[in-house]
Amino acid sequence: MLEVENVTTRFRSRRGVVHAVNGVSFRVGSSEIVGIVGESGCGKSATIRSVLGLIQPPGEIVGGRAVFDGTDLLAIPAGALRRLRGSEIGFVAQNPFGSLNPILSVAAQFHNLIVAHRGRLSRKQTRDMALQALQSVGISGPERVLDGYAHELSGGMAQRVVIGMATVLGPRLLVADEPTTALDMTIQRQILDLLQDLVRKRERSMILVTHDLGVVAQYCDRVVVMYAGKVIETGPTAQVFARPAHPYTQALLGSVPRRGEEIGILAGRVPSLIDYPPGCAFSNRCVHALDRCARIVPASRPVAGEDGWNVSCHLVSGDADPLSREEDVRAHRAG
């Protein structure tokens, strides 16, 4: 459904070029929910904004492809991408009130959206479509919501309306960037259940960007783990969570607080995205780092025998041949 390959995005800043997204690749299959997870500054939002054509100066996409249904989203004109966005690809952002127009009624916003993509339709026709969309996102009393304004809605209701707008034209891919981070726990659960339903029942696909491992574990078929603008591990959620291959994935999962157990500590800091390190970006914090880790960028390799499970780490078997690895270890111990 979507194949992202080697996408690279940079931002110019006064202090230098910020390497926000560095050769990111992942796939989203049909009827699949893929989670992109990582800590702040890891490039997860910049990645999907690149794919959706939402990067604005001083940001610039300098390379890569994002093939959606045979079309490279990064190569088509902005107008064509805009037409795809909203009709074929729906987007749900973190703050619902940022996506809603405060001075237009909900019905008017639905009308403008639908007419922009589907051409001249009557108010009555767009209203019917909007009603159906609001019903499908579990809003009782959709008539009243349609005639109201954004400020009259609670956070949870506003996010439902945004999801209704993102799905009213029947997109095949839904992209949600931290859709529940601003919401309370009980509402979060309802919204995520709703998104999952919309994807499963209509055979759509979804990218869910989140910092919350619970959201990934409970809702995502596959996970893409990002660090310093790179994908360091990707694979089926169950496998990656049970046997994380990358030392960063291991550290991240080890940071989850659990009663009666010590929390794992990940020392150090994410490297500067301006003076991007030459080797593995995690090597300065990695307890297993070998000499080569700081010098040579590890390629993404399949984790032994597992389909669709890849990791970028010199230490994982299948990457280096055992002999040279032995040498590395000896050099490491000696030095």
Binding site: M185, R189, Q190, L213, G214, A217, T237, A242, L253, V256
Partner: peptide, 19 residues
């Protein structure tokens, strides 16, 4: 509240049955 908790363990399917 407990039912809404999302376990970070994918083998644990917490279901939101009590809402």
């Amino acid at each position: 509240l407990l039912n809404a908790f999302l376990s970070p363990d994918p083998t644990v399917r917490t279901r939101d049955t009590y809402r």
